[in-house]
Design a protein around this nucleic acid. Structure first.
Lengths: 253, 253
DNA sequence: CGGGGGTTTGAGTGAGCTCAACTATCGTGG
DNA sequence: CCACGATAGTTGAGCTCACTCAAACCCCCG
């Protein structure tokens, strides 16, 4: 018997995208689901396979990626605790990208059919799912701008700023320190660089006093400096008023 | 009094994403709208401005783009006749990217509120809008892979293949010849290259006998060769069965 | 026939890549 | 508790793909 509270992060997230009534919230929380704990080597979804489940990230970090014919990998998105993972895929029959954990994760697999049925029955849930998909697409677009038109230093700085702000608004961190599970290889795959060049660029950012990495934790030491270095401004993240408020209360203003 | 048939390309497109009943089709065609003819210098939407309209492309080509702080431009998507232009933005209050014509275009501006109301009243329309947004996001993801992990030759070849297949499945061309309104500068902005390097790379592709450009028309002379050069396979475009069938009938198999 | 947007060419430069080795870190099992 | 192996990070040297800057050319259109 699934615990009703397990899915509340998703409910909260979707409610921020589009207002949900009590009935909708209850319906969301009552969705059937299966919990799983996965380590980094596992796949949450695989390109080309049928999309039977939609996946909610209950704890940890995950990422989507695609491969070129000769095996080069591009990371398409990074997801935080509380994110719905497959939404861009969600509406599709066949998954178009791979999803894997970035850290050890706990996920809830929700049958796609059940989610679609809920969207069908509740217009405000459909609206929230649509809005969330759109917000993710806007982030994807910013990544394309990042990779296509910024240099290595800016790409990395931009990504670190984005992750800080997203975690801040999601209530996952306080101030510009947050857990860091992304290897330099993966950081390269996210920014269209090689791990070697990521390494050297990170050293530059550290020497400039912009950030620090100790263990599995990053500290953004100079927020305005890092924003400038990364040409970062948060508009594309499409925050709701609630989230704007959470941001205003912290260093990442 | 708007002509009811004007919006039928949109209805057809959405119906391919998710089956629509007669009532839904009728409701879509009855949407209020304003027709406009625009030349290439105009903006259809502007980053940062409130999103009051959703825009349907009735003829011609259009593109979305964003700028970095120092003025570099990244093209995020190219849209064909029949496409809904602002869907990723659609759900958002504020536009997060710019939209401009690539050729002279005719567009229909549909009040965003009217579209949202329709989605609210008809679950299958909401599903179709969601699915279309997801399909666009999948294309965006492929562009990110393209720019992040392929070399200049492959990036350009890939884009040309994508546009051929999309136009083929939309019934806009027959065989691998199609109108070409993208300048080399814009092609660079779409692929993360400079116009100079695009020029030289195009020359290479022409000399290899892969394609030809005369006037405002491209011909893909060697489809398998171009697919190989661009590491292209159409899975990410998320076609419906109808569209698959249209594809099977042509050279771009 | 002049102007302007788009394309083409040349020469020099540099950001980021490749390849390869080395070091640090950390979890695991003996 | 230490040895080991595996994973991740760091360093060096040389190279190349794509960039920059600048000029010429082309062609369409008024």
């Amino acid at each position: 018997m699934p615990n009703v509270d397990i899915l509340s992060p998703m409910t909260r997230k979707l409610a921020r995208r589009s207002p949900l009534g009590e009935r909708e919230r209850a319906a969301l929380q009552a969705l059937p689901h299966r919990i799983a704990d996965l380590d980094r080597s596992r796949f949450i979804a695989r390109e080309g396979e049928p999309n039977r489940h939609c996946c909610l990230l209950l704890s940890g970090f995950a990422y989507c990626h695609r491969l070129t014919g000769d095996g080069a990998r591009q990371i398409l998105s990074v997801h935080l605790t509380g994110d719905l993972l497959d939404l861009q895929n969600g509406a599709a029959e066949i998954a178009t990208s791979n999803v894997q954990p970035l850290s050890p994760v706990r996920v809830a697999f929700i049958p796609r059919a059940a989610l679609l049925a809920l969207a069908d029955a509740h217009p405000s849930i459909a609206a929230a799912l649509w809005a969330d998909t759109g917000a993710n697409a806007s982030i994807l677009a910013e990544w394309l701008l990042n990779v296509g038109r910024r240099n290595a230093r800016a790409r990395i700085a931009h990504l670190m700023c984005e992750l800080a702000v997203r975690q801040q608004t999601a209530g996952l961190c306080n101030g510009p320190h947050y857990p860091w599970w992304i290897t330099q290889e993966q950081l390269g795959d996210a920014t269209g660089l090689t791990s070697v060049h990521v390494n050297r660029t990170l050293q530059g950012l550290r020497q400039e006093g912009l950030l620090q990495t100790v263990q599995r934790q990053v500290s953004l030491l100079d927020w305005p400096g890092l924003c400038a270095a990364g040409d970062f401004s948060a508009g594309y993240l499409q925050f709701s008023d609630v989230e704007e408020a959470a941001l205003a209360d912290c260093a990442c203003a």
